[in-house]
Design a protein around this nucleic acid. Sequence first.
DNA 1: TTATAAATTTAGTCATGGCTAAAAATTGAG
DNA 2: CTCAATTTTTAGCCATGACTAAATTTATAA
Lengths: 231, 231
Amino acid sequence: MEESALTLSTSAQDYLKTIYLLRSDTPVTTQSLADKLAVAPPSATAMVKKLAALNLVSHTPYRGVELTPSGEKIALEMIRHHRLIETYLAEVLGLSWDKVHDEAERWEHILSEEVEAKIAEALNHPSHDPHGAPIPTLNGEIAHDNWAPLAGMDAKTTVIVRRVDDDSAELLRHLREVGLVPGALVEVLRAVPAEGVLQLRVAGKKRTLGVAPAQSVFVEEALNEVRRNVK
Amino acid sequence: MEESALTLSTSAQDYLKTIYLLRSDTPVTTQSLADKLAVAPPSATAMVKKLAALNLVSHTPYRGVELTPSGEKIALEMIRHHRLIETYLAEVLGLSWDKVHDEAERWEHILSEEVEAKIAEALNHPSHDPHGAPIPTLNGEIAHDNWAPLAGMDAKTTVIVRRVDDDSAELLRHLREVGLVPGALVEVLRAVPAEGVLQLRVAGKKRTLGVAPAQSVFVEEALNEVRRNVK
DNA sequence: TTATAAATTTAGTCATGGCTAAAAATTGAG
DNA sequence: CTCAATTTTTAGCCATGACTAAATTTATAA
């Protein structure tokens, strides 16, 4: 019943991972894949066909792509590698959190199971990476946190930052500067959509944040200011 | 005067590194390159021509290859990466010393300067890797240790292991078992070439070692049993 | 010194994973 | 419901870095 241990190219692994990360209620198109991976659409189509031939995705031409169970397994393996490496680089080697993503992007493909285990152990099997993203377990289980974007919060609410998107280093540097890191307590002072910005209080300081970056910050409503830890 | 920061393929980097490591009094042939890299001779010829076009090697057809200064710089960078990673994996992550080589073989190509610096710092800028090989500095300086093979030592001499070849995991496991690791004090009890084996005393135990593996162990003669540390 | 063996390079092929241009399918507007 | 715009796929091409087979150069032995 076990899948054969075919060794996939770095590219193929990247496509599988990206398909997983693009999943939502709408199907993953070759276009969206091409955009995310910075390749031309025909390149994405070609790879999707190869992955389909390997039974890692199912492809309905003109309709979209979906991971098969074995494709998802590989995707989750890559994501586990990626997030473990990000955590290791940030927490052990002290690399700044806006740099760990790009680094992990390369490392995830060459991490052996053995070193993965050593890293997981050194970190005491963390559940989330430095940006708040859940780390899949060895068995491919992953927490389905479902935090709401800060951009959608009403004024007068108090929230805890749980996760931030990590694909823009520039955004990350800004968020860190403003104090919007996982665990931070944030008061939404003013939120008028037409203004395009949110007024916040973070760590005692008043801050202004555009709606666009606020779409990349995911929060949990704080009830009675009780600060729950990331589990 | 600075070289342009062309990004070389993993393959090209491997060739440069291998040319450096194969250097001796005899020229590096495309054959020896092909053997070491496990490719067919025409593949080596083709890559050598590409590297020559980039001024990273000079190639005299039918005669051999030599690194140019800029080629050597890149080779030393790879070797620094490789040996730093080996040291890190062994000392910090606790990976066994017979496994670190293969791992480093992949990692050396994707290590950023920044993470390299973090790793070097975490290790306190080590001068040698776990197998006793010297680690080039950031500026490309490298110690030219010139230890003698254990295979050539006479009986009744006492030596200190300074370095072992690291390209065979199996050999490394055996050497570790026998106690032939850098720093170990070894008494050569019997050395008769015709017998094809050496009789040794290592850490109080009598050991027999074939001449072939003994070619991969490099030692320094111990004067008055004074045990010098690896510098 | 010459012929044969060995080493090396050249010639031509293949797979991978990109690309552009063109064709085909889908979507949406009238 | 049909036609134009958009999306997606097909067709054909390129670079990289392997490969085998053949030609060429160098080395060696008679």
